[in-house]
Design a protein around this nucleic acid. Structure first.
Lengths: 81, 81
DNA sequence: ATGTGACTTCCAGTCCGTA
DNA sequence: GTACGGACTGGAAGTCACA
């Protein structure tokens, strides 16, 4: 698999900014530490599905959304949909 | 979020059986431990996205598929799509 | 408001076995 | 073929200080 932590990171950062939230605000809403969220957005960790779930709720998106490849990702053709 | 490990567990077991694979075979193809896969299918662990990715490749599905709620899941109405 | 380093705790993940 | 146990290791989880 191509780099899932990377995909999570970019999805997370985009969704957060779309909502006009700071890392501090999102982290608080998700009940995780601000600096840890920073680490995740820098793709420094392979988060567990439980953490993913907390963030999904805080962003009000289905958890699966955080794993979706961007539209013109090179691998999208074969694996997605 | 409702129980993601539970969702992963049921999705995983269904997809694996649809393909006629044993836990042993799938674990081997995904490069993870056989007994650990058993644990996952019993929802005893919160897997990381990297592990999720390995399993997705082994099953030839997009990683997001493993997090999708079943069609008539109680929470589906609000959060999904 | 975010990046980063240093740190501790605890669980994801491996490997052995038995039933 | 699967469930479950024990013992172990590395890395995710969580906190804090400082730039």
């Amino acid at each position: 698999m191509e780099d899932l932590p990377e995909i999570v990171a970019t999805n997370l950062r985009k969704l957060r900014r779309d909502r006009g939230l700071s890392q501090e605000e999102l982290a608080h809403r998700a009940g995780i530490d601000r600096s840890y969220l920073g680490n995740i957005e820098r793709a420094e960790y392979s988060v567990t599905v439980v953490t993913l779930g907390k963030l999904a709720v805080a962003l009000d998106v289905p958890p699966a959304k955080l794993l979706e490849l961007p539209d013109r990702h090179p691998m999208r053709k074969r694996l997605v949909r």
